[in-house]
Design a protein around this nucleic acid. Structure first.
Length: 204
DNA sequence: AGGACGATTAACT
DNA sequence: GTTAATCGTCCTC
C-alpha cells in the first residue's frame, strides 16, 4: 500500500486536494476503504460550508491546521466524515462521500447490518463513516499523527482521465459550484440527488 | 426557551 | 418514484 499522506499534502488548496484524494485508502482498524467520491467545501468563501458563518464548537476543527478529521451529525441519526484541507485557517474540508471496501469487509458488514450488497457498504457519506466506525468522538483526530486510529494513504495509481466533477449533492446553496469529484465507472459512487428535499416547513 | 432544518438512509409503492 | 425516522446545532426571540 502507498505512503501515509503528509500534512503538506492536505495543506494544498482544497480544490486540488479533493480530486487527488480519489483512489487513496482510508484505514481504521481492519477496515480499509478506497475513496471513489468526495466533495470540496471551501470554508468562508462557500455558503454551503459548515464553516461559512464562522467558527462554532462543532466546526472549530475546520479552522485549525489541515490533516485533521471533522465529523458531524446530521438528520438526527447519521455521522459524516471530512478531512480538513487547505492552508491553516482557510476552514476548508473534503467530505468523504463514497468508497470501496477493500479490506475488513466482515467488520464493515457488522457495522452496517441493513446493508445487502457489499458495494453499498461505503456508498454514501453516512454509510462510509459507519463502515469505518467513525462518530463524533473521532472529530478532531490528527490524521498525520503517529498512531492515529484512522490513516489515509496513497493507493494504486488512478487514471486521471477517469476523474469527473459536477454539482454537489443535497445542498440548497452554491449549487452551481462543481465541487463534487468522483471516479467514472465506479459502482460505489452514490447516485446524484439534486438539490434539497424540502418537506417540513416548506416555504416557497 | 423555542423552533426550523439538515453535506442522509432505508423502506416503502 | 415517495417518505418517515430522529436530534444536534444554530438562529431567533
Amino acid at each position: 500500500m502507498g505512503a501515509r499522506l503528509s500534512r503538506a499534502f492536505f495543506a494544498s488548496p482544497v480544490l486540488e486536494v479533493a480530486p487527488d484524494l480519489l483512489g487513496c485508502v482510508l484505514t481504521s482498524g481492519s477496515v480499509a476503504v478506497r475513496i471513489t467520491e468526495v466533495e470540496a467545501y471551501q470554508g468562508l468563501d462557500d455558503p454551503a460550508s459548515h464553516a461559512f458563518r464562522g467558527p462554532t464548537p462543532r466546526t472549530e476543527v475546520m479552522f485549525g491546521p489541515p490533516g485533521f478529521l471533522y465529523v458531524y451529525f446530521t438528520y438526527g441519526m447519521h455521522w459524516c466524515a471530512n478531512l480538513v484541507c487547505g492552508p491553516d485557517g482557510t476552514a476548508s474540508a473534503v467530505l468523504l462521500r463514497a468508497g470501496e471496501v477493500i479490506g475488513g469487509a466482515d467488520v464493515a458488514r457488522e457495522r452496517r447490518p441493513a446493508c445487502k450488497a457489499d458495494r453499498d457498504l461505503a456508498r454514501g457519506p453516512a454509510r462510509l463513516a459507519s463502515a469505518l466506525g467513525l462518530t463524533g468522538v473521532d472529530s478532531g483526530l490528527d490524521l498525520c499523527a503517529p498512531g492515529s486510529p484512522l490513516t489515509v494513504r496513497s493507493g494504486s495509481t488512478v487514471d486521471t482521465a477517469l476523474v469527473r466533477n459536477g454539482p454537489r449533492v443535497g445542498i440548497r446553496v452554491a449549487t452551481e459550484r462543481p465541487w463534487r469529484f468522483w471516479l467514472d465507472g465506479e459502482p460505489t459512487v452514490s447516485t446524484f440527488r439534486p438539490g434539497a428535499l424540502r418537506k417540513r416547513g416548506d416555504s416557497e
